[in-house]
C-alpha cells in the first residue's frame, strides 16, 4: 500500500516536473537552419554606398517625429475619453429623479423603518449609530478593515527602518522635540483631548460621535504627544506590536460578535445580547463594544500613518 502510494506520488512528481518518458509522437520545434558562411549581413547604417531601406527610413522618421505624434495622439485620445465620460455622466444626471420629490426611490420603506423602529430595534438613542453599527454593521466593518489594511501596507513598505539601519534616509533638517511652549501646552491639552475622545467613543450610541470621530480625536492626542515629547515617549505605550495586536483583535471581535448577531437575527434565533434601556450607557446591545473597536482601529491607524510618514516607524 505504502509503496503503491509512493510510486503514484513519484509519477505525479515526475509529471509535474516534466521528468517523465517522452511520448512517442512528440512534435519537437523545428531547429533553425545553420548559418551559411556567406550569408549577406545588412549594411551598416554609416557605410558608404548604402541606400536606406524603407524600414530604416521609417525608423528614422519615427525617431524624429514619433514623440510629437504620440503626444498629439495621447492628448486627442484623453480629450475624447473625457468627453465620452462627461456626456455619459450628464446623461445619467438628466435621468436622475428630481431632488426632494416624495416619490424618489430614496424615500422608501427603509427610511421609515429606521426612523420609526430604530429605537426599539437597536436600542440606540443616536439613530445614526444604530444605523451604521447595527443595520449596516458590515459596511462599517469593511471601512475599518480598509483602514487597517492601508496602515499595514504602509507599514510593510516604509516601516523597516529599524531592522535595516543603512537605508535610513538622511534628514534635511534636524528635528528636535524640545519646545518648551509646546510642552507646557501639551501637558494641559493631552489629558483633556484623551478624555474627550473617550467620551465621544463611549457615548457613540447616545449622542453625536462614535468610533470614527472619537478615534480621530484620540489619535490627535497621540500625535501631539509625539510632537511635544518625541516618538520614543509614545513608543513606550504604543509601539508597532501593540498597534498590530490591538487593531487585529478589535477587527476580530467586531467580525465575530457582529457575525453572531447577524446569524441569530437572520435565522430568527434567540440572541443572548441584551438591548438594555434606551438612554443608558450600557445599552443598545453591541453598539458600544463595536464603537470601542472602531475607535481603537481608527486611533491606531491615524497615528500610525503620521508616525510612518514622518519617522518611518511607529
Amino acid at each position: 500500500m505504502n509503496d503503491e502510494l509512493k510510486s503514484i506520488w513519484l509519477k505525479f512528481f515526475n509529471w509535474v516536473m516534466g521528468n517523465g518518458p517522452r511520448p512517442e509522437n512528440e512534435v519537437l520545434p523545428p531547429e533553425p537552419p545553420p548559418d551559411l558562411p556567406f550569408t549577406q549581413k545588412p549594411h551598416d547604417k554609416f557605410s558608404r554606398f548604402h541606400e536606406a531601406t524603407l524600414k530604416e527610413r521609417y525608423n528614422q522618421w519615427l525617431e524624429i517625429h514619433g514623440l510629437h505624434i504620440f503626444s498629439i495622439l495621447y492628448s486627442a485620445l484623453s480629450i475624447l475619453t473625457c468627453l465620452v465620460i462627461v456626456v455619459l455622466l450628464l446623461a445619467t444626471v438628466a435621468e436622475l429623479p428630481p431632488f426632494g420629490h416624495e416619490r424618489n426611490p430614496a424615500n422608501n420603506e427603509v427610511i421609515r423603518r429606521y426612523v420609526e423602529h430604530g429605537w426599539h430595534e437597536t436600542g440606540a438613542q443616536n439613530i445614526v449609530a444604530g444605523l451604521i453599527l447595527d443595520y449596516r454593521a458590515f459596511d462599517t466593518f469593511g471601512e475599518s478593515s480598509v483602514l487597517f489594511t492601508a496602515a499595514v501596507s504602509v507599514l510593510m513598505i516604509l516601516g523597516n527602518s529599524r531592522s535595516s539601519k543603512k537605508y535610513k534616509f538622511k534628514q534635511l533638517h534636524v528635528y528636535r522635540n524640545d519646545d518648551t511652549i509646546l510642552r507646557g501646552v501639551a501637558v494641559m491639552a493631552i489629558p483633556v483631548i484623551l478624555m474627550m475622545g473617550c467620551v465621544v467613543v463611549i457615548n457613540g450610541h447616545l449622542s453625536a460621535g462614535g468610533g470614527f470621530a472619537g478615534g480621530a480625536i484620540l489619535s490627535t492626542a497621540l500625535i501631539l504627544c509625539a510632537n511635544a515629547y518625541g516618538f520614543e515617549s509614545v513608543r513606550r505605550f504604543f509601539n508597532e506590536r501593540i498597534f498590530i495586536v490591538s487593531s487585529s483583535t478589535a477587527l476580530m471581535i467586531y467580525a465575530l460578535s457582529k457575525g453572531y448577531s447577524f446569524f441569530t437575527g437572520a435565522n430568527q434565533l434567540h440572541s443572548i445580547i441584551p438591548k438594555g434601556v434606551v438612554g443608558n450607557i450600557l445599552s443598545a446591545g453591541l453598539i458600544l463594544p463595536l464603537n470601542i473597536c472602531v475607535g481603537l482601529i481608527v486611533a491606531g491607524t491615524l497615528y500610525g500613518f503620521y508616525a510612518l510618514f514622518s519617522e518611518g516607524d511607529i
Binding site: D179, I181, L182, V185, M188, A189
Partner: peptide, 10 residues
C-alpha cells in the same frame, strides 16, 4: 487661546 499661539509659534 491655548492652542492658536502655540500653533503659530511652531
Amino acid at each position: 487661546w491655548l492652542c492658536n499661539p502655540v500653533a503659530s509659534h511652531l
